[in-house]
Design a protein around this nucleic acid. Structure first.
Lengths: 200, 200
DNA sequence: CCTACCGATCGGTAGG
DNA sequence: CCTACCGATCGGTAGG
């Protein structure tokens, strides 16, 4: 996972892995049976990491605006802590595979659709609870939120500058501050047990 | 350029280029002297394409909000027309090189800083002309604009879905509609010779 | 721009 | 998990 997040999934070779592990190529090979299987299992393992580091913390928050904040916080923390040394594994996979053909492009497509779909659901939840502007299309809000997260990931890794993460945090706070009638900071509310500090 | 935008700059091999061109490896090699030189010249050529397709059309518009709209339109058109079959060459380069070491990472860093700096300048121009909310930090607005453009590029290529471009267009229109006192659609204005249609 | 070659590395196989 | 190997491809060189 670490090698692939830096060098790309194609740069993850059996020989390199063997050298890093102090094994022979054949020894590593025997565990996977093919390079494609190695790549496949690497993606599966990375998915588990991302679910543990990003998805689970988000779903631990109550549905609605809190969940969106929790998702953004968890993702940006996961990027900032360099859980993968090349930044978000799936952002790297997306960029590597977006214009190629084959099974990994299809997996990247499915991952992207699930990710965007999850954000979309959280946005509609927040809108239905009156915590987020209901007049705006949920897909557009989801696009904007995700765009900030993706940009933060790529530029943080490239520039090694924490200000990038701050920019994303601020931009997302602004997006989520376009509040509906029941926003936690707009009125004291019963539906949202946890009230966050208002920020800017 | 086309190969590198799809397979990555590292996937641009002399042998593959020779095959595509019907030449021998040595024949291609003689033109560049090293793989690194081939990669370097490929980046230079791609920079010229991007300046012709994106930068020049933006700078042709008058400084201020029009220039920001022109930049976003030119970039999204350049992505949508697949000027490079793998999407924006420098977005691909950034994602490939962001976590590696070496000269290409440094080039990607410089390219990113110049790109963000250009958008930043356009934002402050628009703010000084009263066309854009002056209370917001220009760097934050530039980050949001760029985030929409980058996300549009990656997801358009991955998902092959024109709705992605529409989302970016709408999101950018919203960002640029946070107008100052002199916004073209807010008041008839003398400073901006070209008045755009208001859109949504 | 070519032929002819180099050592290194690639994914993969045979056989243990 | 190993030794010993395969054909293909890598960047690069010698010499023309």
């Amino acid at each position: 996972m670490r090698v692939a997040s830096i060098e790309g999934l194609e740069g993850l070779t059996i020989g390199r892995l063997a050298r890093d592990l102090g094994m022979t190529k054949s020894g590593v090979y025997a565990h996977f049976g093919s390079k494609e299987q190695l790549q496949h299992e690497t993606i599966d393992a990375a998915q588990q990491v991302m679910e543990r580091e990003v998805i689970a913390p988000a779903l631990a928050a109550p549905p609605g605006i809190d969940q969106l904040h929790a998702l953004a916080d968890a993702f940006l923390s996961y990027v900032e802590r360099l859980v993968f040394p090349g930044g978000c594994f799936f952002a790297s996979l997306l960029a590597e595979m977006d214009a190629r053909e084959g099974p990994f492009r299809a997996m990247a497509q499915q991952g992207a659709r699930e990710w965007l779909g999850m954000i979309h659901t959280m946005v509609t939840d927040a809108q239905q609870q009156g915590q987020l502007e209901p007049t705006q299309e949920a897909g557009l809000i989801a696009f904007q939120l995700d765009a900030c997260l993706e940009a933060a990931n790529y530029y943080y890794v490239l520039l090694d500058d924490p200000a990038v993460i701050d920019n994303a945090r601020q931009a997302i706070r602004m997006l989520l501050d376009r509040r509906g009638p029941n926003h936690p900071t707009a009125t004291a509310t019963i539906t949202s047990p946890r009230v966050r500090s208002p920020g800017r």
